[in-house]
């Protein structure tokens, strides 16, 4: 069988050659001023360069929080994140984050939303328009440059979010359930597109999802989180199916079965 289950990545493996390393991360939040919530517990992940890692977990398992910690938007309560061996202390344009809830600027057009990255870096107007236009085309939104977000469908908004993250050419892409609100067809199409973009623009990708099929279709490696708070790592699966993958492939279904059995995730 081409699928092997490897345990939680331990630190002894060494950190050299890894793009991102999360060392024993745990996270607590204070809610409503008085309630402490333990969201993540002892998460250790190591991601190789240009690897496509999928984090799979049910709702409320701390997936977004983990991604935000890697992005540098939240500081872990204990543990640390290393990027190229250096500790992450804050967000930066070397990582691109696609938000779960789109987070487009309603006052900017599609073009305005996508070009914001280069604009913040002080790239001159003409140049950044060109770059932005290229990525808008890449996600298939050419012709909609001058639309405002409220004139777009959910899937289109999500694609703007993806283009916006890609436009800075970050070495690491972090995607938070980007296709969660799409219909099945668009979703399938977007998954294919994601693989295509990943294959043309080789990046390190960390992709969060709650959908097993999506995880197997996309990932080189799947890390499952356990469902109850605090979120803990459950298992790590290497997926060495050849690409392009087929949802109906026997090995695909086999792996799907294994993951379903092993986690509380059903369907």
């Amino acid at each position: 069988m081409s699928v092997k289950e490897s345990g939680v990545v331990s630190q002894e493996k060494g950190q050299d050659g890894y793009k991102i390393v999360c060392e024993r991360i745990s996270k607590e939040f204070i809610q409503k001023g008085t309630q402490r919530v333990h969201v993540l517990e002892d998460i250790s992940v190591a991601v190789r360069k240009n690897e496509f890692v999928v984090i799979l977990g049910p709702g409320q398992s701390g997936k977004t929080t983990l991604l935000r910690i890697i992005a540098g938007l939240e500081i872990p309560t204990t543990g640390r994140v290393l990027l190229d061996g250096r500790e992450v202390t804050g967000p930066g344009p070397d990582r691109g984050l696609v938000f779960q809830g789109y987070m487009l600027f309603p006052w900017k057009t599609v073009m305005g939303n996508v070009e914001i990255g280069p604009k913040l870096r002080g790239v001159p107007k003409k140049e950044r328009r060109e770059i932005a236009a290229r990525y808008i085309k890449l996600v298939g939104l050419d012709g909609f440059e001058n639309h405002y977000p409220h004139q777009l469908s959910g899937g289109m908004k999500q694609r703007v979010g993806i283009a916006r993250a890609y436009v800075n050419s970050p070495e690491v892409m972090l995607l938070d359930e980007p296709f969660g609100q799409l219909d099945a067809q668009t979703r399938y199409y977007m998954e294919k597109e994601t693989v295509r973009i990943w294959e043309t623009e080789r990046r390190t990708v960390i992709f969060v999802t709650n959908n097993i099929d999506e995880a197997i279709y996309l990932g080189d490696r799947i890390i499952t989180l356990q469902g109850k708070l605090p979120g803990r790592m459950h298992a790590v699966y290497e997926v060495d199916l050849p690409r392009p993958r087929e949802h109906t492939d026997m090995k695909f279904l086999e792996l799907r079965h294994i993951i379903t059995e092993a986690s509380e995730l059903t369907l």
Binding site: T34, Q35, V39, L229, P230
Partner: peptide, 9 residues
């Protein structure tokens, strides 16, 4: 327990 009461000033 994931939830616990704390005092923050």
């Amino acid at each position: 327990m994931a939830y616990e009461e704390v005092k923050v000033k």
